[in-house]
Design a protein around this nucleic acid. Structure first.
Lengths: 151, 151
DNA sequence: ATGGGGCTTGCCATCATGGCAAGGTCAAGG
DNA sequence: CCTTGACCTTGCCATGATGGCAAGCCCCAT
């Protein structure tokens, strides 16, 4: 199986398959006389595992650990669970940070006329945080944003 | 004002101030005879705007647009609002993608004993999606989105 | 005048991915 | 058999925002 076929079958691009090989995430592929890499169904199975883990947001270093545990028949599921839990924590932290950004921006957007006049609470807040929108107005707007998405 | 003082006053690291200068986000700083960059309070004001916009997750290219509108006294607030709204959309998309990852992982984690035995639904799902857990969680992950960028 | 801290530039690294280019290989059809 | 087009190879460059390191110069206080 050529790298292009393996790519289609696994969902991992040929470019990334080569990259994973150079970084040691996957073993070096067999080569044919032509120099072409040759992949077995087992290799594709491996790649699909990687692809799936990437889809869940795991970093390559974490996937390396997961692959090790996957291969280790005497693994402890606690180790897998610990990696996954740490990743969930990381996801939660990033989600929270982005939600805070979004909330702030939605408040400001809700205060912006969005017409052809120059006055803009969004710019005003970037210039001097908290001056353009008083906290109580912010709180009201946040409530509306949550309960009624068209404020 | 030296770059270090400007950095402290603005919250932007000296390194990033130089970077913003090379990329043209901010104009080239005045230089003293020694070659040291010299910053005015207005420069710091500029940098704080940038810092704040970064805190809200705007990319540097977007901040460039925002700075242009900030300086333009004949701007239309609609243009600012459009940029901010687009960014909120982007944040929402990333948040949704990460929430789906988290949801899937939490389901799997909830099915994992987390002990010293090797059986692990997390690995099982990475190997063969949807076999270890209910099918509805599987359907969600099929949608794959761009998720790894910082907000 | 000396020492320590700040400034300069420049280069490297991150992380996962895409793109481009020059050249070799394979398979199908004339 | 030869051409053609699709595919493979390696290698280098770019991304985006940030940190680190290093060699060398500058400034101020003792």
């Amino acid at each position: 199986m050529n790298i292009g076929e393996a790519a289609k079958a696994s969902g991992v691009s040929a470019k990334m398959i080569r990259y994973y090989e150079t970084t040691g995430l996957i073993p070096k592929a067999e080569r044919r006389d032509s120099g072409y890499r040759d992949y077995s169904p087992a290799d594709v199975h491996n790649l699909r595992f990687i692809r799936r883990a990437r889809d869940m947001g795991f970093a390559v270093a974490e996937i390396n650990e997961l692959l090790g545990l996957w291969r280790d028949r005497s693994r402890h599921s606690a180790d897998v669970k610990r990696i996954a839990s740490a990743h969930v924590e990381q996801l939660s932290a990033r989600i929270a940070a982005m939600e805070e950004m979004r909330s702030t921006l939605q408040t400001l957007i809700g205060c912006c006329a969005g017409d052809d006049r120059p006055d803009c609470p969004i710019l005003a807040d970037l210039e001097e945080p908290g001056v353009a929108v008083r906290p109580d107005a912010q709180a009201r707007l946040r409530e509306r944003a949550i309960t009624n998405r068209r404020g």
